[in-house]
Structures are given as C-alpha cells and as structure tokens.
C-alpha cells in the first residue's frame, strides 16, 4: 500500500483542498468583504461551539435529534426488509410493487411533510414518522434487489437438504443478499438523518435542525455555523466509517 505515488499525491490534494477551504474562510472573514452575518470568523464559531457545549444545549439538542434518527432508522430497517421479504415471495408481486416503490421514491416525499405535522403535531413523533417513511424506501428497494438476486440453485440446494423456511432465510438468503442490503441500510441512515434535520428545520420545537433555523432567525451566525460545521464533520466521518465497514463486509 505504501509508496503508491499517485495515491499519495491525491491524498495530498484532498488535504490541500480542505486547507484551502479553511484558509479561504479565515481570509474572507478577516478581510471583512463578506458581512460577518453571513460568514463569521472561524474563531467566533469555535467560541460559539464551546459555549454550546458548556451550556448543555449541545447535548440536549443532540440527544433529541439522535434519538429521533435512531427510532426512524430502526422502523425503516424493520419495515423495509419485512416488506421486501413479503414481496419477494412471488415474482408477480415483485413485478407489481418494485416499480411502484421506486416511482414513489422518485417524487419528493417532503411534499407530504405538512400532513405529518397536521396528524402528529410539531413534536419529535412527526419527525420520526416522516424520516422513517423516507428511510423505508432504500432499505426496501435494496432488500428486494438483494433477495431476488439470490441464485435459484442455492435455494434449491437448501430445499433438497430439507432446510426449513427459517433456516433457508438465516443461512442462505440473508448471507447471500447481505452486501446489497447493507448498502440500502447505509443509504437509509443518511436519508433518515437528512430527513430528521429537514423536518426539524421546517417545523419543530427542538433538535439540531430547529437550532440552526432559530440561530438564523435570531441573527446569531456563529452559533448557526457551529451547528453546520458539526453536522458536516459528523456526516463526513460517519460516511467514511460506514463505507469502510461496508467494503470490508462485502469483501468477506
């Protein structure tokens, strides 16, 4: 792995890109050409972040958003894979449902958000339901693809050895379709996360999305940027870790 020159220099360029971004931020805010209302200095953002952590606001908002995301993600995973399992029992059902699910996923479900607020209020439950709806689709679509991609002769072999339906699922279908389902679960996480933040931004009483919207309304750019930077760093880090785990799991 070591000594691959082009690998090394592309890493250098990526780090350089990051440095350039931070440098440009620092330079632009210190020159004062852009109003500090739109681009606060990196230092003020750091101070705002420390203040958020010390006042406990950071942890309370994080807990709300985090638990909303986890609940929605869990529902999406269970409902998505159960629906996919039921649908893939018959080729006809796959032909009926798969394009419908893909078609619905192609329209912005955010349109339905006002209905969730109407039914469930502006508390966390509307965000759980909305994000779970969004997160359901990638899990269901990938699990359908995964379950239907299991080679027929594996199933026939298991059947000929007298495996029960559960044993077939546990030892043949699940391992064979695992890499594809895993991709769906990863995509589902990011969609759920984005939907919760979006729901909180649009209409909520608390949570990270609400904090960002509120900071913008109250003209507190440093606090808003503190949240934005936190979310960006978190999602980039999670993305890298999950992709790494995924490529390791599918390599096995």
């Amino acid at each position: 792995m070591i000594g691959d020159a082009s690998n090394l220099s592309s890493r250098a360029i990526q780090l350089g890109f990051l440095a350039l971004l931070v440098g440009a931020w620092q330079l632009l805010s210190s020159l004062g050409t852009i109003s500090p209302l739109l681009l606060p200095s990196p230092d003020s953002v750091r101070i705002a972040f420390v203040k958020l952590v010390e006042s406990g606001q950071f942890w309370s908002s994080l807990r709300v958003t985090g638990s909303t995301v986890l609940q929605a993600w869990a529902i999406a995973m269970i409902a998505g894979s159960a629906a996919a399992y039921a649908i893939t029992r018959s080729r006809f059902l796959v032909a009926v449902f798969e394009p419908v699910i893909a078609g619905i996923f192609a329209i912005p479900l955010t349109l339905l958000f006002p209905l969730y607020i109407l039914f469930l209020g502006i508390g966390p439950s509307s965000k759980v339901a909305y994000a779970a709806t969004y997160g359901f689709f990638p899990v269901a679509l990938n699990a359908i693809a995964g379950f239907s991609a299991v080679k027929e002769h594996y199933l026939r072999a298991a059947h000929s050895m007298g495996a029960s339906a559960f044993a077939t699922f546990r030892h043949v279908m699940l391992p064979a379709s695992f890499p594809i389902i895993l991709t769906g679960i990863r995509i589902s996480f990011f969609i759920t996360f984005a939907s919760v933040l979006g729901g909180e931004t649009l209409s909520s009483v608390t949570g990270i999305g609400k904090r960002i919207a509120l900071a913008a309304e109250l003209m507190e750019p440093a606090e808003m940027f503190a949240w934005i930077v936190f979310v960006i760093v978190f999602s980039v880090a999670t993305n890298m870790v999950l992709s790494m785990l995924e490529s390791r799991a599918s390599a096995q």
Partner: peptide, 12 residues
C-alpha cells in the same frame, strides 16, 4: 453525502 438541508437557513 452531507445533509444539505442544514444550509437552508443560510441560503435564506
């Protein structure tokens, strides 16, 4: 992969 919706208030 970044949830861009966090930038919506900034865009406004």
């Amino acid at each position: 992969g970044i949830p861009q919706v966090i930038l919506l208030p900034l865009f406004v």
